[in-house]
Amino acid sequence: MTTSEPASGNGNGGAAPGELLLKVEGVTAGYGGGDILKGVSFTVARNEIMCIVGPNGSGKSTLLSTISGILRPRTGEIAFLGDSLVGLAPRQILGKGVVLVPQAHSLFAEMTVRENVEMGAYTVRDPALVRRRRDEIEEMFPLVRERAADKAGSLSGGQQRLVELARSLMLDPSLIVLDEPSIGLDPPTRRTVFQMVRLMNEQGRTILLVEQNARAGLKLSTRGLVLENGRVRLTGTGREILEHPEIGSLYLGGAVSSTPAG
């Protein structure tokens, strides 16, 4: 328990914007026999919103699982602020300020909204700190305060996503890893969720997200990465990828720049 208690200010303290936050180098990983990731390398700088896109089975979710410690890479290196994350338990990685928000429905349905948010900081021993963070988060997400005593399972899909985002802030993380934040949401709700992601980014948090809705994800992001068959096909700014002729026709249904996105 000692390793996983960031006392305060991971989000904004420390180094300047643009500094290298996460470095993934030559990562090979997979379940069972085969490799899903085949030598993936990329970097994420502080204050970026980096979006990973790619077809089904390209290894997007596997990559996030590997970064957050759920899956151990077979080869390669993952470094966060210069410290290796390889071999650390998810809990220890959480303690370093890297928080994963898993794909939809990760709340505890029978627990209240407030209990769910507090679960985000169950490793923090100082109750005053937990209360302070909770107050800040309730300020940012009024929904969390309004529905505090309601069971999380009684919220709509979009509201649950917002509570998941709120929960991820309880450890005051530097890097928030989002797995398909817009999955299953209607366009207006998706816009609300993306606005919240942008707000979190404006508050000094770096975001790494995987998005099935590639166009919307890339529009939200400062940089994008195309994953194909477990290899990095292309990296660049969100706009560069959106306008790349081949990528556009392969994954984004072509004629990208002219189509309005969510």
Binding site: P142, L143, Q159, L162, T189, T192
Partner: peptide, 11 residues
């Protein structure tokens, strides 16, 4: 109402 409030303040 609660959903709208959440969204509104977000904006």
């Amino acid at each position: 109402e609660t959903g709208r409030t959440g969204g509104g303040v977000v904006e």
